[in-house]
Design a protein around this nucleic acid. Structure first.
Lengths: 211, 211
DNA sequence: GGGGCTGGGTGATTGCCGTTTAGTGGCAGG
DNA sequence: CCTGCCACTAAACGGCAATCACCCAGCCCC
């Protein structure tokens, strides 16, 4: 027992992170933990500890936990939107663009698996439904970029079956299924991922688009 | 302030549910709540209340919460396995059987959405990974029933592309994607579900199987 | 220069959750 | 009758998100 029985005190408090500086710090710490440990693992307390601040301080900058993690997801999805816009505008055949879009989508999902799962695999009620509006709108715009190219295909009469919407949604949901299932069941005896990916894309495009 | 200051007492306790009777009661209550409110909503305390028993009593019959809900999922998946076995054995064209299997799979998933999501959309870490072994094995057997029929198609040289495994997994994951996304994003402007389903199945089969 | 407001910070607290521990009461077998 | 067992219980533990009342440095303005 040392002599320091008195309060350790006198400003063990972390100095103010003026303005939006602290906010950025929090996002950065949250992202680290979120990527490493997922939604469940990224608790308010851990994030606060990582920043070196009390858990309460986070509520100065964000309304609640979901707001922090959704903001991280949003910045991830902005990358996807940019990617989609770029691919959709390329001066190549629409079918080739659709394939590139789906391929890039799969790559994006695998590379941002935690964000992807939070947005697209959130088991009902995990996140409060109406807080996702911003993210949801971002997702819609990503889908619209994709659907636009499918619409081009439809306009030239090359859709083998279904409407533009049902064909686009079939392709999208199919790709979602592949990435989602390989993420949540990593122990399954999967075919080599490259092969699985190309077989799925080949099959879908061959099955839904003529020529 | 009434006179009853003494303990309210004298056997407010629920009589013993002899043998496995209580266990069944718990499962039944848990299933009701689980179907109505999902994994998050089905808390130990709520289940215990519904049965009319203390929360601790549940640990007499189950090791933990996951064991209760996984048992519910297992009985659901046994139905799927039976379904698959029956369809796989029908004396009709293998391609027709594959289509029926996928169609039944989708219907099953939509009708048992909570069990389905718990098993196949469990965002990493929601359930402790190695406790799912029984359910996982059941799922494997369901898949094997399906893959067996795809193997028949492969054996007659009618697979347009890919191996038996990659083709089977493409179809399976694609269907998973459709049901998973329509579950987790119910507010999206989906094409009519019947159309989406038939377009996806038509496309997959046309794209992966010749003739 | 001093009073008061502001806003980032804090520890304690609330109310959930799953799970554990230390009992308790009734009943079956000797 | 007693004894041991076992389904059951209340109370507690630790962890979670979120809220509360408070604190104090810095600034503006009189």
């Amino acid at each position: 027992m040392t002599t320091t029985l008195k309060k350790p005190v006198r400003s063990a408090r972390k100095p103010k992170g003026d303005g939006h500086l602290r906010r950025g710090e929090i996002l950065q710490a949250a992202e680290r933990i979120f990527l490493a440990e997922g939604y469940q693992g990224a608790t308010i307390r851990k994030i606060a500890d990582e920043v070196g601040v009390s858990s309460t301080a986070l509520y100065m900058h964000f309304r609640d936990k979901d707001e922090i993690l959704l903001e991280i997801c949003n910045s991830a999805f902005e990358i996807l939107l940019k990617q989609n816009s770029e691919i959709a505008a390329r001066p190549i055949d629409a079918v080739a663009r659709v394939r590139l879009l789906l391929d890039a989508y799969i790559t994006f999902a695998l590379e941002n698996s935690n964000a992807y799962q939070l947005i697209f695999c959130g088991q009902s009620g995990a996140i409060s439904e109406e807080k996702q509006t911003i993210t949801e709108e971002l997702g819609d715009r990503c889908y619209e970029k994709f659907a636009g190219v499918v619409r081009e295909i439809g306009a030239t009469g090359r859709l083998r079956t279904g409407t533009v919407e049902s064909a686009a949604q079939s392709m999208w949901t199919a790709c979602h299924g592949m990435v989602a299932l390989t993420m949540t069941k990593p122990k399954f005896h999967w075919a080599p991922t490259d092969e699985l990916r190309s077989v799925l894309l080949d099959g879908l495009l061959y099955g839904l688009v003529t020529d």
